[in-house]
Write a protein that binds this DNA or RNA. Structure first.
Length: 283
DNA sequence: GTCTCAATAT
DNA sequence: AATATTGAGA
C-alpha cells in the first residue's frame, strides 16, 4: 500500500491508512474486493475525489493543462469501470441493481430528499442518486433514547467536543465545497437524536469495506482495528462494531440465499461473492 | 405490521 | 469480541 501517489503530497491522502491509490493500483485491487457493490462504492469514492480535484484545479487549467487532462482521463477510466461493473450487475440480475443504487445512495434516501434538490455531486448523480451529500452533516453519535439522561449527556458532550465534526467523519475533507454550499442545511425538523446518529454514507461504508479488506476480511478484522485504521473523526468502536455486525449479518443472509440459487452477487452487502475471502478466515 | 438501522446491553 | 435486544423510522 505504499502508494507512490502518497509521495506527491496530494491532499487526498488525508489519513495514513487511506492512501489514494493510483488508478493502476486501484484497478489491480478492485478484483480483490469481494462484491460488486463494494467495488462500486469504492469506485464512486474515487470518482468523487477526482472530481473534486478536477474542480479544484479548474481555475488553473491554463497553467496545468496536463494535470487537467490526466485527471479527466483518470475520471474517464474510473467512470468506465464503474459503468462496466454496474452494467454487469444489471445484466446479472435486474431487480437487484435497484438495491445497489439504494444502498449506495445511502439507505435513508428519503431522508436526503430535501437536500437533493441542491444535490451537486456531479456526474455520479446518474448512478448514485443520493450519494455524498450526507457526509458532512451528522455529528458523532446517537444517544439512544433508552436512557434519557445518558443520551442527553452524550449529546451535550458530543456537541461540545465536536461542534463541527461530521457524520461522515474525517471524510468531510473530501466533500467539495460546492456540496457544502449547496447543501441546504438540515432542516431541524428531525428529532434531535436522529441528527446525531451515525450515518454510514456510501463513502464511509466504502472506507469501512476497504479497511476490512486490508485487515483480512470481516471475520479477521476487529472493530477496534477497523476503527483505528479508518481513523474517522468521532467514529467509535461501538459504531464500528454495530456496523460490522450488520455487515456480517447481511453477508450471512446473502450467503444462505445464494447457497441455493448459485447466482451472482446480488446483495449490496455481500462480501464474498467472488473469491475474496469467504466465511472461513482463509488466512 | 414488518423491516432495517444504529445504539446499547449482555 | 460476539451476539441479543431495543427503539426509532420507513
Amino acid at each position: 500500500m505504499a502508494s507512490s501517489s502518497n509521495s506527491l503530497g496530494l491532499k487526498l491522502s488525508l489519513k495514513p491508512t487511506y492512501v489514494p491509490k493510483t488508478i493502476t493500483d486501484l484497478m489491480k485491487d478492485l478484483p480483490n474486493i469481494e462484491n460488486e457493490t463494494d467495488k462500486l462504492a469504492v469506485l464512486s469514492d474515487y470518482i468523487s475525489q477526482h472530481e473534486e480535484e478536477l474542480n479544484s484545479i479548474a481555475a488553473l487549467r491554463g497553467q496545468l493543462p496536463q494535470c487537467m487532462l490526466l485527471l479527466m482521463e483518470a475520471l474517464g477510466t474510473l467512470r468506465q469501470e464503474f459503468l462496466k461493473i454496474k452494467n454487469g450487475m444489471v445484466a446479472g440480475k435486474e431487480g437487484d441493481i435497484d438495491m445497489v443504487l439504494k444502498e449506495n445512495s445511502g439507505m435513508k434516501r428519503k431522508r436526503c430528499e430535501k437536500m437533493l434538490e441542491a444535490e451537486q455531486v456531479p456526474n455520479l448523480k446518474c448512478d448514485f442518486k443520493g450519494k455524498g451529500v450526507m457526509m458532512n452533516s451528522s455529528p458523532p453519535h446517537h444517544p439512544s433514547n433508552r436512557k434519557h439522561p445518558k443520551a442527553f449527556r452524550d449529546f451535550v458532550q458530543a456537541s461540545n467536543e465536536n461542534p463541527n465534526s461530521n457524520g461522515g467523519g474525517g471524510l468531510n475533507l473530501r466533500a467539495d465545497n460546492r456540496t457544502l454550499l449547496n447543501y441546504k442545511h438540515k432542516p431541524l425538523t428531525q428529532p434531535i437524536w436522529k441528527n446525531n446518529r451515525r450515518s454510514w454514507s456510501p463513502q464511509l461504508h466504502a472506507r469501512f469495506v476497504e479497511t476490512l479488506h486490508i485487515l483480512g476480511g470481516m471475520y479477521e478484522a476487529t472493530p477496534k482495528q477497523i476503527r483505528e485504521m479508518m481513523n474517522v473523526d468521532g467514529l467509535t468502536n461501538d459504531q464500528v462494531k454495530s456496523h460490522l455486525q450488520k455487515y456480517r449479518l447481511h453477508s450471512r443472509k446473502q450467503q444462505e440465499g445464494c447457497a441455493q440459487q448459485v447466482a451472482k452477487g446480488e446483495d449490496p452487502w455481500d462480501p464474498d461473492r467472488d473469491g475474496g475471502e469467504p466465511m472461513a478466515p482463509a488466512n
